[in-house]
Amino acid sequence: MNKSNTSTLAPQPGLPTPAASWYDRKGLVQIGLLAFLLLVPLALYFLGHIYYVNLASRITLIAMAAVGLNLAIGYGGMISFGHAAYFGLGGYVAGISAYHAFDFTPVIGWPVAIPGSDSMLVIWLAAILLCGLLALAIGAISLRTTGVYFIMITLAFAQMMYYFANSWPTYGGEDGLPIFLRNGLPWVDTNDALTFFLICFGGLVLSLALTSRIMKSRFGAALTMARLNDTRLATAGVSPYPIRLVAFVISAMITGLAGALYADLNGFVSPTMLSWHMSGELMVIVILGGVGRLYGPLAGALLFVMMETLLGGMTEYWQLFLGLVLLFVVLFAKHGVMGWLAGRERHE
């Protein structure tokens, strides 16, 4: 494989691509990753190993949350250290809605009574809307800052959510909120591990398609320009602020939807989903996979969860080895798994 050749010809992410075809190295790796994630759980399901199907759902949802974060970090250059806020909010929407549906009490009694719901469609819609609103508020303030200040202010907002969830007793506080019956969809049985996996997989594919579509649009080109050189964008008569804000909101919506599904997968939501470790893990996954690579989050999530499962089974100090691997990747393998599998894409 001629590395220098691929790297010089490779396009900037988001700028119009010269006919990215499925049969080149990158296309093959992407299809291979998706096929691996889809076919291995299918095969294991029919061999009767439910556990691996649920593990695959976990990988899928974490990948989806990271796809959302990648839109902000990788394509938008907005280093959010607080995406756990949206992941957790999505989770709490699912948890709180199910809690009230289970008890037949309204979520809000005043001014209009809003009942709880155990329908996934309602929950997804609510999670997307609420995460969008939250991101609009947080983004509007945070995007006034840049650099380290942006990293820290997004962290601060996530910590605010974390401490609020921790100390507010109604929904379990520190203890978290169990979802006793998985939320449902019309016509299908969401309790079946494979069905639920396919729902998650569908979500991941949709969010990948959405990201790809956005980045090929004029909006995507503007976002890329805002990342690379916002003065030039401004001289072209486009203000970078609203472009970034919209991308930030969409990014939060994707992560929030993943969070809602993640709560249903675990049957449980707790402030852990909002903690800065969660934000850090999502960032780690984006980096592991390769920043600003469409399929990077998927590769990163696969590697991360497998490492967690395999190392966690071998030693109780697995986080030490995770740290070493991570350090190695940051210092020496700048382009992540996708850079290694599919060749470099960006000029450094």
Binding site: H49, N54, R58, G176, N266, S270, T272
Partner: peptide
């Protein structure tokens, strides 16, 4: 000390 991890470990034990 993580509830989500405990939940997934319990599934691992029961299902695998």
């Amino acid at each position: 000390n993580r509830p989500d991890l405990a939940r997934s470990l319990s599934n691992e034990f029961m299902q695998r």
